[in-house]
Amino acid sequence: MFSLSDALPADKPALYETLAAQARALIEGEADAVANAANFSSLVFNSLDGLNWAGFYFFDGAELVVGPFQGKPACVRIPLGKGVCGTAAQTREIQVVADVHAFAGHIACDSASQSEIVVPLVAADGALIGVWDVDSPHLARFDEEDAKGMAELCRVFVEFGWKKTAAR
C-alpha cells in the first residue's frame, strides 16, 4: 500500500528508487492521465527538499501547455526551443541547470527559482508527450544523480501513468 508518510532514504539513488516504487503504486491502477500527473506532481513536490515547483508541460502538437503541478502559478504556454522546458522538449535531452539566470532564454515564471531540471517525456513510439519540470529556489540544487533519478521517475510515469485521456 502506498503511503507518503513512509520514511524516505537519505542517499539519492535509494531515495529515487523508493519514489519510483511509490509513484508506480500511486498511478498504476488509474486510467486518467490528468489524475496520474496531479498525484505524481504532489508525490515528488512533497517528498524532495528544496523545491518550489514540480509539474508537467504537455505537448499539444504545436507547443508545451502547462499540466498538473505543485507550486505557484506557472507560464501557460512554452514554444519548443524556448527556455529550459522548450529546449528539453526540442532536443529530447535532460536539462540540468545550476543557475537559471545563466541559461540563455530562461523563462522566469517564478522569480524565486534559481535552478531547474527538465526531463523530456517521450512515448514508446517516439512521440513527444511533453516535459517534467522541477524548480528550486537554491542554486545548483540538481546534479547528475537527480537527473538519473528523475529520468527513472519519468519512465515510470510514461509507462504506468500516461494514458490517452490526457489528450482531451
Rank of each mutant, 00 (worst) to 15 (best):
L4D: 02
A7I: 11
L8K: 15
P9H: 04
P9Y: 08
K12V: 02
A14N: 12
L15R: 13
L15S: 02
E17I: 00
T18M: 14
L19T: 04
L19K: 06
Q22M: 15
A23G: 10
L26W: 11
I27F: 05
E28P: 02
E28N: 06
E28H: 10
G29Q: 13
G29Y: 01
A31N: 12
D32A: 12
D32N: 15
D32S: 11
A33F: 03
A33Q: 09
V34E: 13
A35F: 02
A37I: 02
A37C: 02
A38V: 03
A38H: 14
S42I: 03
L43P: 05
L43G: 05
N46L: 13
S47I: 05
L48P: 01
D49W: 01
N52L: 10
G55L: 13
G55M: 11
F56Y: 08
F58K: 03
D60K: 02
D60P: 06
D60G: 04
A62L: 09
A62S: 14
V65P: 00
V66I: 15
V66T: 11
V66H: 00
G67Y: 10
P68F: 07
P73Y: 10
P73V: 07
A74D: 00
V76T: 12
I78F: 10
G81Y: 10
K82R: 14
G83V: 10
G83Q: 10
V84E: 05
V84D: 06
C85E: 11
A88I: 09
T91C: 00
R92F: 00
E93N: 13
I94Q: 03
A98Y: 01
A98V: 01
A98I: 00
V100Q: 04
V100C: 09
A102L: 13
F103D: 10
H106A: 11
H106R: 08
I107S: 08
A108H: 09
D110H: 08
D110A: 05
A112Q: 14
S113R: 07
Q114M: 14
S115A: 09
S115D: 08
E116I: 07
E116G: 04
E116M: 07
V119S: 04
V119W: 05
P120Q: 03
A124H: 09
A124F: 06
A127R: 15
L128Q: 08
G130H: 11
V134L: 09
V134F: 04
D135A: 06
S136F: 07
P137V: 04
L139Q: 09
A140F: 07
F142C: 06
F142R: 07
F142I: 11
D143A: 12
D146W: 02
D146E: 11
D146F: 02
D146I: 08
A151W: 00
A151D: 09
R155H: 13
F157V: 00
F157H: 03
F160Y: 15
G161S: 10
W162G: 00
W162V: 15
W162I: 13
T165M: 06
T165H: 08
A166N: 06
A167D: 14
R168N: 14
